[in-house]
Amino acid sequence: MIRKVIRVCVGMLGLILGSTTYLKLMKDIKQLTFGREIYGFAAAIAVGIVIGLLFYVIEPWVVKKVKEAAKIMDKEISKYPQTDVLLGSIGLIVGFVIAYLLSGLINQIPIIGGLLSLITYIFMGYLGIRIALKSKDDLFNISKLSRLSNTIKEKGSKKEVKGISPKVLDTSVIIDGRIADICKTGFIEGKLIIPAFVLEELRHIADSSDDLKRVRGRRGLDILNIIQKELKIEVEISERDFEDISEVDSKLLKLAQTINGKVVTNDYNLNKVAQFQGVEVLNINELANAIKPVAIPGEDMVVQVVKEGKEMNQGIAYLDDGTMIVVDGGRKYMGETIKVLVTSVLQTPAGRMIFGKPKN
């Protein structure tokens, strides 16, 4: 059914083409009107019918030949790689575009302009195909180098991620609490390792009969909960224990050596021992020494004087992170919570000391 419809459409196309062609010629050649215009129109219809019938008759033969030509072309094209066909097509299109731009000038040449334009299309199309196919190897090499470069970058980035050393936290840095804020900013990369023996030491401190130690121990446990639950950083509780070593600091250094990690601490003595043993250390106090101190001279602080100082009339107070505050003239305020005016701040690798005086 579809074939018949197509055949009729081809016949109608022949009818229209024949009639319009005759009418166009009739305007230029008066003899085609046979003396009267009505005869010319009748002749145009007759010619259209003849051409339409011709198209209708030869349509099967034309379709057959077109199919045969398509099969031959498909067979020939299949002999070449798809990349060659694609590049050749692109080259042909580019060549035709260039020929179209040139033909505007070439067509202005009298007599032979049309012929030269046709030759230009053929030549530029052929040239485009040849250049495209000749550049295939170069394009392939560029693509290969690009993929290789991306692969190297991906491998390099993976190696960099794998190469980030785990960070082993000691008791002092957990109690200090600033490690949570540092992790929150993203300055600490890699996995945080919390040894089980450090947790045990924290529990002992939190259960201490000394009020100050108990507060610091519980603060350390709270900091660990914040790091583990609120921060987007991988935390691992290491169950490794070295029973032949009794001291927690020595166990910490041994663990860091075993896993090729770095110790995070603010213990000055541990820092020195670690450096002697070749263990890398991240010292929170050294980091704090490089940035603006928490307490600024002239700033007010509310503290509780907990004990006497070494010098006359001095009182000693502590911040939550264990920072010592020396209050000049604070001995008489023992056990009281007072407002202190900061007079100076001393920051050393061993820690920070704040000096102040009671504010009246």
Results as ranks from 00 to 15, higher is better:
residue 97 V to S: 05
residue 259 I to R: 01
residue 354 I to F: 03
residue 95 G to L: 01
residue 246 S to A: 12
residue 191 K to E: 15
residue 281 V to P: 05
residue 200 E to Y: 08
residue 158 K to I: 10
residue 287 L to F: 13
residue 35 G to M: 03
residue 61 W to Q: 12
residue 357 K to L: 08
residue 297 P to W: 09
residue 47 V to N: 00
residue 33 T to C: 11
residue 16 I to N: 02
residue 170 D to S: 07
residue 115 L to R: 06
residue 58 I to W: 05
residue 43 A to C: 08
residue 108 Q to A: 13
residue 317 A to S: 10
residue 182 I to L: 15
residue 249 D to M: 06
residue 243 E to P: 09
residue 308 E to W: 00
residue 202 L to W: 03
residue 262 K to S: 13
residue 217 G to E: 05
residue 84 D to L: 07
residue 12 M to Y: 06
residue 349 P to H: 09
residue 219 R to V: 03
residue 186 G to Y: 02
residue 6 I to N: 08
residue 144 K to F: 08
residue 149 S to W: 04
residue 308 E to F: 11
residue 220 G to F: 01
residue 103 S to Q: 08
residue 240 R to L: 13
residue 223 I to K: 02
residue 81 P to Y: 06
residue 130 R to K: 15
residue 58 I to V: 15
residue 314 Q to L: 06
residue 193 I to P: 01
residue 164 I to K: 13
residue 138 D to I: 14
residue 178 R to T: 10
residue 259 I to E: 02
residue 89 S to K: 00
residue 32 L to E: 05
residue 31 Q to D: 11
residue 185 T to C: 01
residue 143 S to V: 05
residue 188 I to S: 04
residue 235 V to D: 07
residue 10 V to Q: 08
residue 99 A to C: 03
residue 158 K to R: 13
residue 180 A to C: 05
residue 152 I to S: 06
residue 345 V to L: 09
residue 220 G to K: 02
residue 168 V to S: 11
residue 215 V to K: 15
residue 310 K to V: 03
residue 319 L to E: 07
residue 72 I to T: 14
residue 80 Y to R: 14
residue 126 Y to P: 00
residue 17 L to S: 12
residue 109 I to V: 15
residue 359 K to Q: 13
residue 268 Y to C: 04
residue 345 V to F: 09
residue 282 L to E: 03
residue 241 D to E: 15
residue 17 L to Q: 06
residue 79 K to V: 03
residue 244 D to R: 12
residue 264 V to H: 10
residue 53 L to W: 02
residue 108 Q to S: 15
residue 342 V to N: 06
residue 188 I to D: 02
residue 111 I to P: 00
residue 45 I to Q: 01
residue 326 V to A: 02
residue 272 K to Y: 07
residue 196 A to Q: 14
residue 160 E to K: 15
residue 32 L to N: 03
residue 218 R to M: 09
residue 49 I to Y: 03
residue 170 D to V: 04
residue 226 I to Q: 11
residue 191 K to T: 15
residue 16 I to A: 14
residue 302 V to T: 14
residue 70 A to F: 10
residue 357 K to H: 10
residue 294 V to E: 11
residue 155 K to E: 12
residue 118 L to V: 14
residue 191 K to Y: 00
residue 37 E to V: 12
residue 52 G to D: 08
residue 131 I to L: 14
residue 288 A to K: 12
residue 66 V to G: 01
residue 90 I to L: 15
residue 281 V to M: 04
residue 225 N to G: 03
residue 273 V to Y: 04
residue 188 I to G: 02
residue 44 A to K: 04
residue 13 L to H: 01
residue 100 Y to K: 11
residue 307 K to T: 05
residue 198 V to C: 12
residue 26 M to C: 06
residue 283 N to G: 10
